[in-house]
Design a protein around this nucleic acid. Structure first.
Length: 270
DNA sequence: GACAACCTGACC
DNA sequence: GGTCAGGTTGTC
């Protein structure tokens, strides 16, 4: 569910409230959520102070005192909620952390999400982080074009590949390709450098616009305060099958690429 | 590359 | 009953 703009929004929301607070109690409720990676128990967070929260790709990273970090990936339906915005039913609650003043709760209907506690100085060795490509904001258009050019798959599929560039998901891949007028089915390696540089500019533009609008809520996504984002009102092609292209008025098409639904305008995107 | 798996819920 | 869903991983 959450892609880069949503995870970034959550990281900022949670950090604004929880930074500086000490963990009073941490409890894992559903064992399946814990990532099996030489973890320490969640309860070992007790007494640690939250120094900061960062994001890497779609991962949230909580930095605690005492050389301790917690990595959390929300996958499709994970939600991290604080304060009074937690869900009343407690169904699908899989772990929680009580801080000095606030409580953080993790909900996940589909239980795809994962959490683990590791040593901060082992962070970069964590398999999930290690495999991630650079952040889109850390790339120049030239470097982005070079990385993409090496791939021989459809450009849409390449954009979803977290090892090339981390953080894009299905919504923002479609939106970025529309912004750059590139058809999702084009082979990545055959697109001109000039067009790929434009695509990078489009990705940055779309991601920043989405972050400024607190992300996209299509179904489950909520920010740290339990509120929906706004970017679903600004989508141009994602989920717009059959609706008029905002540029040319022709209906938006839906195809399946790499097993993912893909939306584009067959007139504007070539 | 296609496809199944991991899960649950919404919708047709 | 079937289909679909913002993600990722593993297997033919």
């Amino acid at each position: 569910m959450p892609e880069l703009p949503e995870v970034e929004t959550i990281a900022r929301d949670l950090a604004s409230i929880l930074t500086g607070q000490e963990v009073k109690r941490a409890k894992l409720i559903t064992a399946a959520i814990r990532e099996d990676c030489g973890y320490k128990n969640l309860s070992s967070l007790k007494g640690k102070c939250l120094n900061s929260i960062s994001r890497r790709g779609k991962n949230l990273i909580f930095h605690f005192s005492g050389n301790t970090a917690m990595i959390c990936h929300l996958k499709m339906t994970g939600q991290l909620l604080i304060r009074k915005n937690t869900r009343p039913d407690k169904k699908h609650l899989h772990f929680y952390i009580e801080f000095t003043k606030d409580k953080l709760e993790y909900y996940d209907v589909r239980k795809f999400g994962r959490v683990c506690v590791i040593k901060e100085n082992n962070l970069e060795k964590h398999p999930r982080l290690q495999k991630l490509g650079p952040e889109p904001f850390a790339l120049t258009p030239d470097l982005f074009a070079k990385l993409i050019k090496k791939r021989n798959k459809a450009i849409k599929t390449a954009l979803l590949d977290q090892e090339i560039c981390a953080g894009l998901g299905n919504i923002y891949a479609d939106e970025s390709l529309f912004d750059a007028s590139i058809r999702p089915t084009l082979k990545a390696g055959k697109i001109s450098t000039a067009r790929l540089k434009q695509l990078h500019r489009s990705i940055i533009k779309v991601l920043e616009y989405a972050i400024n609008n607190r992300g996209t809520s299509v179904d489950d996504y909520l920010d740290g305060f339990g509120q929906s984002g706004n970017f679903q009102n600004l989508l141009k092609v994602y989920g717009k099958t059959g609706q008029a292209c905002p540029n040319c008025g022709k209906p938006i098409k839906r195809i399946v690429l790499g097993g993912r639904s893909t939306h584009y305008c067959s007139i504007c995107q070539r």
